[in-house]
Design a binder for these strands. Sequence first.
DNA 1: GCCCTGAAATTTGCATTCAATCGAGGTTGA
DNA 2: TCAACCTCGATTGAATGCAAATTTCAGGGC
Lengths: 230, 230
Amino acid sequence: MESQPTSLHDDLLGQLRDYIVEGDLAPGARIPERELCEKFDVSRTPLREALKVLAAEGLIELLANRGARVRQFSESDIRNLFEVIAGLDFVAGRLACERISDEGIAQIECIHLEMYTHYMRRELNDYFRLNQQIHQAIVDAAANPVLSANYASANAVIRRLRYAANLNSDRLGDAMREHEAILDALRRRAGEELGLKMFDHMQKKREAVCKYLREQSSASASAPNLQPAD
Amino acid sequence: MESQPTSLHDDLLGQLRDYIVEGDLAPGARIPERELCEKFDVSRTPLREALKVLAAEGLIELLANRGARVRQFSESDIRNLFEVIAGLDFVAGRLACERISDEGIAQIECIHLEMYTHYMRRELNDYFRLNQQIHQAIVDAAANPVLSANYASANAVIRRLRYAANLNSDRLGDAMREHEAILDALRRRAGEELGLKMFDHMQKKREAVCKYLREQSSASASAPNLQPAD
DNA sequence: GCCCTGAAATTTGCATTCAATCGAGGTTGA
DNA sequence: TCAACCTCGATTGAATGCAAATTTCAGGGC
């Protein structure tokens, strides 16, 4: 929803966001300002401005007088996020049906076919990359920058989790079938139907992810990404 | 979605947000830092941190080296925002049906009745205040802090517009009927139906608001809130 | 051996200071 | 007269400095 002048602040903000989303840091880890300052070669003032923004986005948390930590997500945090994303997917689906061009549909079908190939070959990295592309393409087809921004922001938090490659293959098969139904509705430009299908798709994904995270957290005492339930 | 320690930064942020949302400033007006500093009695450092956050929320815009301006909204900005809000309403409705208590439903019915009284008496301020309360109550009933936060953020931008009291009474009558249907679905805990009703309700509100803003902007050469279309 | 107390050292929060950019007004030349 | 240019004040962007809070760690008591 923004303007052109790519200020130094925006650059730093983007770099920092990537750095956090990239996921090398342990959740809950302290992030000393000093360290980031030399890492990104800026003084504390612009860095702190960027940290405040990231905290508002929910990627980190700022404890008063105790600095920035990578945010820890409880299972309910993740459920909440997926619910919001599902709502955005619902609008995206409805609006995309009204606004997408025939070429746009064709492109998404291409991505879907490619994704299917990777699914058959069990090439999970590519599978998830293209999965992300399809959802992004539908959201973008809604031609609503505010929607895209909200979607991206919620997704950034989710992406940090790196659960994707560990979903079981039952879920992947179901997901492929759901995607085909989604594409079918998109082809027919059945907005309400598509919105509902995308919503349900995301709700199911939510369940699968939460189930996976729960299993993992009970398996390993110190779960890599999930905080003990609150 | 946040923690307890109410730091000075959060206070300032809240005050500033209220100050912008309150709407005394003309859209597009410059906001010199110095002025805000003495108004809120802080130095520029924490003020600038808060401004960055507000800019990320979309309430103001920061032009490089030219400071903060109250954001101007084009008609499409407003349409976009309402679409996102509609999506959030859709989730809220569905989840509220699953999670709201019987007492919660009773409370909302009370608000609705009170609102109906104000509608009959054409007491618009109270009408809109209670309207806001009902939507907020349903969103809160979804018991999803992330959802509530996103909803509040999008709403803050809309609330700045102060269009509400100017909608014509046809629309208000329709809105009351829609609200009754919404309450009916909530009573029956018909989640999918409620979600769709709330979504459509918000879409219709969007059309009414955009129509009003368009008329106003063609009536007065310098529209108070709307930027000439892009 | 463990826990509590307290002081030093780090780290954060904010104020102040310095540098760079923008904008206004005036000057000069066509 | 008008337009382009230039200079100077004002405002923003970023760096540094200082005080307060916190964390760490050493010593003493149990």
